[in-house]
Design a protein around this nucleic acid. Structure first.
Length: 479
RNA sequence: GGCGGCAUGGCCAAGUGGUAAGGCAGCGGUCUGCAAAACCGUUAUACACCGGUUCGAAUCCGGUUGCCGCCUCCA
């Protein structure tokens, strides 16, 4: 039984889909006014894993992730750069896709843009006005928080308590300082659409209510996003959606924790933003994913070079095991009729069923890697049919787990070749020289001139080249 | 000021009542000409501190300290 921590209830609860075997998920996607950072990557990867897991255990998933392509930040940025808002958002949507592709994030089932759903947005606002939850004031439309009795139920605040130290902009047009804008009257030069209240554009919160209910129904299973969206964004979504439709909006709210740098949340003011594209220049994309899923999704994670180096080492360790299995089987072929699932997969599912505990699942993977290496040490390449069947079964489970976490998608030999190529480029290593030195060393070793052989090895080590003398010959790799 | 979260070995990190997963690093070994890789062994006398509940607590309750987040755009 899958248990999920529901922010609304502040506890884990058994997941009961509205329709058996199906699940509808809406996750707040990026506002496309700038490149994505590692924090965006975490959120996207977390929900990518959630969706992959639902599918792996047999659910039919409708996954909706939006693009916010009209809002103040986009308008300001576009004005700064002297381009249109649509040009700007188009550029960053393209970039987002490129980076997510590298990170092996699967596309959502539906990826709507706010500007393609102005009609639905206006429809929801009209319902809110007719039901007395919203009011028009000078071309703007506001949601009246006092009309929604449960306002604050997600974030655990009450209106009265928020009044005191709140830092809220004072807008004379608002009846209550916490009223938020549903529709903004147009200012010259801004993108605008016709509406019953004159030309204008939607506020930020309303688009998610409109698009999520449009695609998933007034009541749907899961809504996700970063923890920082709990208030006010998700709180406002609940008020809008339940106010407009008079039904429960979302059953389960899932929120992922932040990525921190040096114990602090990344923020523009601190200047500690790490962009995805910069990170991908330095580390393997699957290592980035492995790092992200090595922690529970609700906890904060510290992004450090050391953690990334460890994640890369871990990834290489698993690929190394897969490679060794292939050598042992004498073939890299993987048939379409993979065996299993076996006990490893079942253990992984137990961890995942406990609020998507990927960290525990990864512990199992490493434990298995060690056991299998030992197993292969023992059979020493002389395994029989049964031994091989065991290897094939566990490999199938590892690949299956990789399919949920979005790792181990490459053939091991290809992974190591690619890795080698990347490092060669990064460290500007002269392959011809390396191979000449190794050839010299092989000769020295054959002549049992150990001193000369070690000298060459030291020289290579100084170039960050590690060599391994194996039965089949000497191989090398980059440190 | 209001609300919430976290504190586990040198580092990272699972574990929410039954006696501390896993990874990295370290140390000792097997293997090796020596290494590397892999494997084996080893490293927490109690999980921030104090007090309480319990046959039994890292896990529950109260308090203290420290760190972080939300309350403003934010994944």
């Amino acid at each position: 039984m899958l248990k999920i921590y529901n922010t609304l209830k502040r506890k884990k609860e058994n997941f009961e889909p509205i329709e058996p075997g199906k699940v509808g998920i809406y996750v707040c996607g990026p506002t496309v006014y700038d490149a994505s950072h590692i924090g965006h990557a975490r959120s996207v990867v977390v929900f990518d894993v959630v969706v992959r897991y639902f599918r792996a255990i047999g659910y039919e998933v409708t996954y909706v992730r939006n693009f916010t392509d009209v809002d103040d930040k986009i308008i300001n940025r576009a004005a700064e750069l002297g381009v249109s808002t649509s040009e700007l958002s188009k550029k960053y949507i393209k970039e987002f896709y490129e980076e997510m592709d590298v990170l092996k994030v699967e596309r959502a089932s539906i990826e709507p843009k706010a500007t393609d759903h102005i009609g639905e947005i206006i429809g929801v606002i009209e319902r809110l006005i007719s039901r007395g939850h919203a009011y028009e004031a000078g071309g703007d439309v506001f949601f009246a928080v006092e009309t929604f009795k449960e306002y604050g139920k997600l974030s655990g605040r009450r209106l009265e308590e928020m009044q005191a130290g709140a830092r809220v902009e004072i807008d004379k047009k608002k009846r209550n300082p916490f009223d938020f804008v549903l529709w903004k009257g147009a200012k010259p030069g801004e993108p605008m659409w016709d509406s019953p209240w004159g030309k204008g554009r939607p506020g930020w919160h309303i688009e998610c209510s409109a698009m999520s209910t449009h695609f998933l129904g007034h009541n749907f299973d899961i809504h996700g996003g970063g923890k920082d969206l709990i208030f006010p964004h998700h709180e406002n979504e609940i008020a809008q959606s339940e106010g407009a439709f008079g039904e429960r909006f979302v059953n389960v709210w899932i929120h992922n924790g932040f990525v921190r740098i040096d114990q602090e949340k990344m923020s523009k003011s601190l200047g500690n933003i790490l962009m995805i594209k910069e990170i991908l220049k330095q580390y393997h994309p699957e290592a980035v994913r492995l790092f992200l899923v090595s922690n529970h999704y609700r906890s904060p994670v510290d992004f450090t070079h050391q953690s990334m180096v460890e994640a890369e080492a871990g990834l290489e360790k698993i690929y190394g095991l897969l490679h060794r299995i292939e050598e042992n089987l004498g073939s890299s072929e993987r048939g379409d009729d993979e065996p299993g699932p076996g006990s490893l997969w079942k253990g992984f599912c137990q961890a995942m069923d406990d609020d998507f505990n990927t960290a525990r699942g990864i512990g199992l993977v490493f434990e298995t890697v060690r056991q299998l290496n030992r197993f292969m040490d023992d059979i020493d390449g002389k395994g029989g049919k049964q031994d091989q069947a065991k290897l094939v079964l566990i490999r199938a489970d590892l690949i299956r787990i990789g399919g949920v976490l979005g790792i181990l998608t490459e053939a091991p030999s290809q992974f190591f070749e690619q890795r080698q190529a990347d490092l060669l480029q990064r460290k500007e290593i002269d392959v011809a020289l390396v191979e000449r030195l190794i050839a010299e060393r092989v000769q020295a070793r054959q002549a049992k001139d150990w001193a000369a052989a070690d000298r060459i090895r030291d020289k290579l080590a100084a170039m960050d080249i590690l060599i391994e003398d194996r039965a089949e010959g000497t191989t090398w790799r980059i440190k």
